[in-house]
Design a protein around this nucleic acid. Structure first.
Length: 422
RNA sequence: GGAGAGAUGGCAGAGUGGUCGAAUGCGCCUGACUCGAAAUCAGGUUAUGGGGUGACUCAUACGGGGGUUCAAAUCCCUCUCUCUCCGCCA
């Protein structure tokens, strides 16, 4: 959520920046909701002040055993008006918050301006693209080796689910294990978190209210529960309603979770294979830090994800998203894309984002510097480290051999107990 | 699933209708004493929102929501969570 004060004071520049993100801010609605809210608050509060004053007088009269009937009568009327105003206040507050919660984050000043992904900027490429004359795709390889089964998965769960078998399942597990250990060794603190979360958690990271259709939803009793679309949701929310000490920052967490996405908006894209699934595995990196340290933290986090690809010797590219391709909550994002021989292009495998205080304001994540008068909102960042399924796809395709076998990346051989999948 | 007990400031823990944003202790900060430290003493120490350039001021908050009342930490309803016992279970 954006800072209402910023909008009030610098509305024009906010409008321009949001336009770069393809968002048209309704200036009139904002001004109206903002004024209405403040007016009703002022009115209600002055009445409450009056009520408190009279209550005080009543108390004094009662204490000295005098009659307070005339005052109590007066209070009756005030009480009724306060009740009405409070209802209006609540309504105005909800309307204002609802409006703001649909407004995306402002792109960072360093984010390149562009309208869609064609405006993204390549930052770097790493690794050698394997030369394969007629590459098989991971579906063919996995099916032939008997380690991936799409058909039977469809039988039990429908489209966009997959069964991994034997060495396929083990490879997925090896990657989870490898990613976690690498991240932990680099100082990221592991968390194992719930996969079902309350509504306010999904609101806190910004998937709600706008992107409800992307989420799987269930309930317990009357409370909705959402299956997490990424570990970002439970992990980012763990410090909600707390005030952290500035000296403890940055806090860096990594978490392995399954992720669940209904992806209603993406029908027709990647319908075949293991690229886009309703359920997939991911190891996520999440960092909390101060405004001053945040930009450096984005680089640090992105580098951590890159080292994982480098350790696996998978060729990748780092791309900076332009304003038009930036996610709802993000102000600056680097995507890491891995080379897929069958598609002859790079595909996203990690998205490393800096959210500024946008998520923190929604989730109420704060820190206080030593000697500071007021607590401030944290800056949050996250990125995959890495998406497990897509890494498995990249390995099958990049490490395929002419004889139909797949070489196991060096760093996974101990865990896999073999050098080659055949 | 059944029975019961709880939820108060950073922590511990008082408070059962008005003088309570809340005793007391611990912690923390500032000052005094000291060469310095400890001990001791004095003072301070929540957050959010509204108004004001500001000093400041007003409002709200005692797990969440609703109610009773002129007035609620305190009474009533409800939800959530925690703990104890029984049952069941991975």
């Amino acid at each position: 959520m954006l800072d209402a004060v910023l909008l009030r004071q610098d509305l024009e520049s906010v409008v321009t920046k949001l336009a770069h993100k393809g968002f048209n801010l309704d200036v009139e609605s904002f001004a109206r909701l903002d004024t209405e809210r403040r007016q009703i608050i002022s009115e209600a509060e002055s009445l409450k002040a009056q009520r408190n004053k009279i209550s005080e007088e009543v108390a004094q009269l009662k204490r000295s055993k005098e009659s307070a009937d005339h005052l109590i009568e007066q209070q009756h009327k005030v009480g009724g008006r306060i009740k009405a105003l409070e209802a209006g206040e609540k309504e105005a507050e909800i309307a204002f918050r609802d409006f703001l919660s649909h407004v995306p984050n402002i792109p960072h000043s360093s984010t390149p301006i562009g309208s869609d992904e064609s405006g993204n900027i390549e930052i770097k490429r790493w690794g050698n693209i394997p030369e394969i004359d007629t590459p098989e795709d991971h579906v063919e390889i996995g099916t032939r080796l008997g380690i991936i089964d799409f058909d039977r998965a469809a039988k039990i769960s429908g489209a966009r689910f997959t069964i991994l078998k034997g060495m396929g399942a083990k490879l997925e597990r090896a990657l989870i294990h490898f990613f976690l250990n690498q991240n932990i060794d680099a100082g990221w603190h592991e968390l194992l978190v719930p996969y079902l979360v309350l509504q306010n958690a999904v609101y806190g990271t910004g998937q709600l209210p706008k992107f409800e259709h992307d989420l799987f939803k269930t309930h317990r009793g009357g409370d909705p529960l959402y299956l997490i679309p990424t570990a970002e949701v439970p992990v980012t929310n763990i410090y909600r309603d707390e005030i952290l000490q500035a000296e403890s920052l940055p806090i860096r967490h990594c978490a392995f979770t399954p992720c669940f996405r209904s992806e209603a908006g993406s029908y027709g894209k990647d319908t075949k294979g293991y690229i886009r699934q309703h359920q997939f595995h991911k190891v996520e990196l999440v960092a909390f830090t101060t405004a001053e340290k945040a930009e450096a933290e984005l680089e640090y986090l992105t580098r951590q994800a890159e080292t994982l690809l480098e350790a696996l010797d998978l060729p990748y590219m780092r791309v900076e998203l332009c304003t038009g391709d930036l996610g709802f909550s993000s102000q600056k994002t680097f995507d890491l894309e891995v080379w897929l021989p069958s598609q002859k292009c790079y595909r996203e495998i990690s998205s490393c984002s800096w959210f500024g205080d946008f998520q923190a304001r929604r989730a109420n994540l704060k820190y206080k510097a030593k000697g500071a008068k007021k607590p401030e909102f944290l800056h949050t960042l996250n990125g995959s480290g890495l998406a497990v399924g897509r890494t498995l796809v990249a390995i099958l395709e990049c490490y395929q051999q002419k004889d139909g076998t797949v070489v196991v990346p060096k760093v996974l051989r101990d865990f896999m107990g073999t050098d080659i999948l055949r």
